[in-house]
């Protein structure tokens, strides 16, 4: 036990016998060479001078960089294409409670399924991205804007719909992979919906035809057939029709 600990110690810190004694202070001269190389090569080698001089030059922003939420709209019209339905899930899940939503209603008090007011307080938002996680309508995503300093402490810091809503193109620009995945899933959902609608229409049509047929048979009278043998409705359709 003790001997093994000793050997471990010996390997961890090299004994001085193994150090090559060349000249007193040899390491100091090696250090001078290193810094001289740094100094001279910084004038012609790019990797010796990696500073990005920020306001003029900018380092590329990673697609995973996320800072402040924004709302996505489809198409060109920001008002009509807004995906947000003012469901208030983000408002409720926001830890610092920086989101404020008012549902838009018509004169009868019926929901228009769109926000009248959608405000995010920049000074409160902590950029956690939970709003983007919970949104079931693919409406809110994280931006990569980071130059957010403002002159006015109160007005400028409160982001309303006018500054929050951005197009899908913008989303595709800042985060291509995520935007493509969202677009694909939305497209698939839309196709599914369309197919379901089509199937429903077909079923209705078929039913109408069957009803017509039945009616005709009933009108014929004669010897009536067993209902059980007639036209049994398929079980899959049963659930859909109810």
């Amino acid at each position: 036990m003790e001997s093994s600990a000793n050997t471990e110690n010996a390997t961890a810190s090299k004994p001085p016998a193994e150090q090559k004694w060349i000249l007193p202070g040899w390491g100091l001269y090696q250090g001078l060479v290193v810094t001289a190389k740094n100094f001279i090569q910084s004038y012609y080698k790019k990797d010796r001078l990696t500073t990005v001089q920020y306001p003029e030059e900018r380092a590329p922003i990673s697609p995973n960089f996320r800072n402040f939420p924004f709302l996505v709209h489809d198409g060109d019209d920001a008002d009509a294409g807004l995906r947000c339905t003012a469901c208030s899930i983000c408002e409720k899940s926001c830890p610092p409670q920086c989101i404020y939503i008012v549902l838009d209603r018509d004169e009868n008090g019926k929901s228009k399924k769109r926000p009248k007011v959608f405000e995010i307080d920049l000074s409160v938002c902590m950029n956690c991205g939970i709003c983007a996680e919970v949104c079931p309508f693919d409406s809110i995503y994280m931006d990569n804007e980071f130059e957010l300093s403002k002159d006015d402490r109160f007005g400028d810091m409160l982001y309303g719909l006018d500054r929050l809503v951005k197009s899908t193109d913008y989303h595709a620009k800042i985060r291509p992979e995520q935007a493509a995945a969202v677009a694909a899933s939305r497209k698939a959902a839309a196709e599914k919906k369309e197919a379901a609608a089509k199937a429903k229409a077909e079923r209705l049509k078929k039913k109408a035809e069957e009803a017509k047929l039945k009616k005709e048979q009933e009108e014929k009278g004669g010897d009536a057939q067993d209902d059980a043998d007639g036209t049994p409705t398929p079980p899959s359709e049963k659930g859909d029709t109810k």
Binding site: T35, N38, F39, S42, Y43, R48, L49, T50, T51, Q53
Partner: peptide
């Protein structure tokens, strides 16, 4: 400036 160049910065 010299110290900066030695430390790989402007």
């Amino acid at each position: 400036k010299t110290l900066a160049r030695i430390q790989n910065r402007y």
